[in-house]
Design a protein around this nucleic acid. Structure first.
Lengths: 231, 231
DNA sequence: CCGTCTCTATATCGACGTTAGACGAGTTCT
DNA sequence: AGAACTCGTCTAACGTCGATATAGAGACGG
């Protein structure tokens, strides 16, 4: 067994190198075997399949990237975490286009495990933002919108990194999607919190067809009144 | 020559059928030949390469879709054209996932010709919107943002069409991106109850020292979020 | 009627993914 | 201790793939 796992990891490393160098299409099991110093049946013993090998390679690469990323603990500002996550995702795709194609470009049914793990991390961040009351839509909706924008941006950048205007594409799309999904603008409003609360009391009181139950409406009015009384 | 083009088109049709049935990976030139009633050298004569054949298949399918779409002349409202284009793009991807993977999923350098043609059409629409003065950013920026969002949405939907909340994902992302890129609201009608609630969310979220208990604060944010979501 | 060009077929090559079967080295059972 | 078993690996091979060298069939202008 002392040599056992070494073979598996040599195969994994060789496959990762080859995929990075010549892409998925150019990577053959035989080449991997030559590099790793093993023969085909060994590969099939560990990974069962060519797809199994490639999946393992992607999972390994993505996990390595995540580990590096997880060393930074979540900051106090979850929106900043979201920005960092976006940039990390895009940069990972640009640095490992072949891996990224395996994760998102394939026509397989369902998503790649590594992609699911990425989405789980994104959801955790969005949930923290939602707890602060700064999400304009459902958590699910926000996650999917952000995820779609991230993937689309990355794929377009991979396909044509030198397109005119590609320089700031990632930043612009990030801010656009944050604007669409989060409540980010402080609106630089001069009116203080109490005045705003008072205004909203008037509005709620005037529109009884609001999407609240009578009980919710009552609580809301009480809380707003308390806020308005602050100043 | 009377039979000449027929062979080419039989090959194209056979390849398209096979790609649709068993995907790219499962499509072999030999199977295509059997279906089309020709032998391999004929395929190589017309398409030079397997990639050439697949490219031609995608271009053909995409062109067929565009032709159907072009029958509708541009309407008076270019924003409506943009919406229609978005939905057409997403539906094309969902109906032809294998084709779509070829267009966007590949790791090839540069983008697929069909994808470029699609971007050209998108640009024409955005330019018309810009002439009406309704674009908030550069035409280039708008095109790239919309394109990225479209591709990302389509890829995510292809990968998991039955995800929770996938139903309205396309619509939501479309509106979000329109909001981010176009001037759709005169900003005057943003004075309603939802806008006010949203403003208050931002204020409350920014001042944690409000005279509320943490529980009250949580309920308030939830209710305000519900109100803000009305619009 | 011949030369040329376009299109298609026969036959074949090397490489690929995959698998059957066997061999040696540890490990466990008796 | 010896037998039986498992695990990791190898040799060898099968069938299929993408691609090609070569040549034959048919149309067409001279």
């Amino acid at each position: 067994m002392s040599e056992g796992q070494q073979a598996r990891e040599r195969i994994l490393a060789a496959a990762a190198t080859l995929v990075g160098e010549v892409g998925i299409e150019g990577t053959s099991i035989r080449d991997v075997c030559t590099r790793a110093g093993v023969t085909p049946p060994t590969v099939y013993h560990y990974f069962g399949d060519k797809r199994g090998l490639l999946d393992a390679v992607v999972a390994d690469g993505f996990e390595r990237y995540l580990a590096e990323k997880r060393r930074r603990r979540p900051s106090a500002d979850p929106v900043e975490d979201l920005r960092r996550g976006w940039h990390g995702h895009v940069e990972f795709g640009l640095r490992n286009p072949a891996f990224y194609g395996l994760m998102y470009g394939g026509v397989r049914a369902g998503r790649h495990p590594a992609a699911l793990e990425g989405e789980r991390i994104l959801r955790r961040i969005v949930e923290r933002i939602a707890e602060a009351g700064l999400v304009r839509v459902t958590v699910d909706e926000a996650v999917q919108t952000v995820h779609a924008a991230t993937v689309g941006t990355t794929i377009l950048l991979i396909g044509d990194p030198d397109a005119p205007g590609a320089a700031g594409l990632s930043e612009r799309n990030l801010e656009a999607v944050l604007d669409a999904v989060l409540i980010t603008r402080p609106d630089a409003d001069r009116t203080g919190l109490p005045a705003e609360a008072e205004k909203l009391v008037a509005l709620v009181a005037r529109t009884p067809d609001a999407p609240l139950t009578p009980g919710e409406r009552g609580i809301l009015l009480e809380l707003l009144a308390k806020l308005a009384r602050t100043g």
